[in-house]
Amino acid sequence: MTKSKTIICRCEDVTLEEIEAVIEKGYTSMDEIKRITRCGMGQCQGRTCRTLLLAELARATKTHPNDIKVTTYRPPVKNVKMSVILGGMEDEENS
């Protein structure tokens, strides 16, 4: 399979080719790559691509994955509708 067809981040459609291109440009931290390519910023919040990206970065920079800083896990853990949050509040208007 070609690199332009290998998807690393499914939510944001980021290919291996794009990841390699930004690493080539000198963006060698997960935090930078996430923000430039949106890899891991989609609906699943990097559930699959976080490890794939980590592995690619480790390979490309010849670093042990343990020595690479992983991007922050941010709340909420799962996507949640606003109505669900409002429903949990004691507010007549929204119940």
């Binding site: 709340p75 909420p76 996507n79 109505s83």
Partner: peptide, 19 residues
């Protein structure tokens, strides 16, 4: 969520992904 739905009630059905 309170503020957003007050101006755009439509937002009720939209999911929060990240804060």
């Amino acid at each position: 969520c309170k503020k957003a739905t007050r101006y755009l009630p439509y937002m009720k059905n939209v999911r929060i992904v990240r804060q």
